[in-house]
Structures are given as C-alpha cells and as structure tokens.
C-alpha cells in the first residue's frame, strides 16, 4: 500500500512539483498540500500521513516551528524538509536536532525527493 505523503509549501509551483513526483512514484501517494506550518500541524492530526515533505521559509508559521510541534505530538510521522535553506548549516543542524529525517535542498530533481523518501 503506498505511503501517504502530505506536502507543506507556500509555493503553489513547488507543491505542484512535489505532488507530481510523489504521485507518479508508485510507492507513495500525495494526500494533499497545505501552505504553512500551522496548516501542517492541523493536517497531520486530521489526515495522519506517514510522511510530511515541508518547506522551512513560509509566511505565518515557518517549517522549523511546525516541525517542533509535529514531532512532539506525533512520534510516528517522518518529516523531510525540502527547502532552499537546506545548505545553511544552522538550519540543517536545527532541523536534524528537532527530528527531521533528511533535508533536501531546492532546486531539486525528482530523484532527490524519491531517494529521500525511499530511504525512510
């Protein structure tokens, strides 16, 4: 059964790219996308995804703040950060310490995302 993935990104374009990559993979299915950290916390509780692909730099609640809450509330869900800030050592370190499984930098190609998801 495909693993359920929630996409969290304020960019419509990135959300669409991720939905296409995930949907076309065969082993994952995208159950929806939301546009900031607060919506991600709510969607995680309502939809119970297996994996969350989440941006860091979003208006409203950012990805690291949301990551902290999501991991505190849900020990099962696996979070992959997908962000243009992945190469910033402080951001990478913080995300990993908070419980992210991997940090994928933008710009990405489909292989970057699928490799990260399949390694979980």
């Amino acid at each position: 059964m495909p693993k359920k993935v929630l996409v969290v990104d304020d960019s419509l374009v990135v959300a669409r790219q991720l939905e296409q990559i995930i949907g076309g993979s065969g082993d994952f299915c995208c159950i929806g996308s939301v546009r900031n950290g607060a919506e991600a916390i709510k969607a995680n509780m309502q939809d119970n995804p297996d994996i969350i692909c989440m941006d860091m730099n979003m208006p409203g609640m950012d990805g690291l703040t949301a990551l902290r809450s999501i991991v505190a509330l849900d020990k099962e869900v696996k979070v992959v950060m997908v962000t243009s800030l992945g190469g910033v050592s402080d951001n990478f370190n913080e995300a990993m310490k908070l419980g992210a499984r991997c940090v994928v930098s933008k710009p990405f190609v489909a292989e970057d995302i699928l490799r990260a998801l399949r390694a979980l």
Binding site: D10, S11, L12, V13, V14, N57, M58, P59, T83, S84, L85, G86, G87, V88, S89, D90, S105, K106, P107
Partner: peptide, 29 residues
C-alpha cells in the same frame, strides 16, 4: 509564483553559500 519561487531558491542558495563563508544570513518569504 514561479518567479517568487525562483528568487526564493536563489536567495536560499546565497544564504547557504554565505554560511560556508562564515556569514549568517536569513531570508524572508
């Protein structure tokens, strides 16, 4: 949104490169 995302990617990578060079930069959406 495409142009917004393009500059977000460029500036995130600028912050990453700055971090390698010892400078801390943050970016807003």
């Amino acid at each position: 949104d495409c142009l917004l995302e393009f500059i977000n990617v460029v500036c995130g990578n600028v912050a990453a490169k700055a971090s390698q060079q010892g400078s801390a930069l943050s970016i807003n959406p």
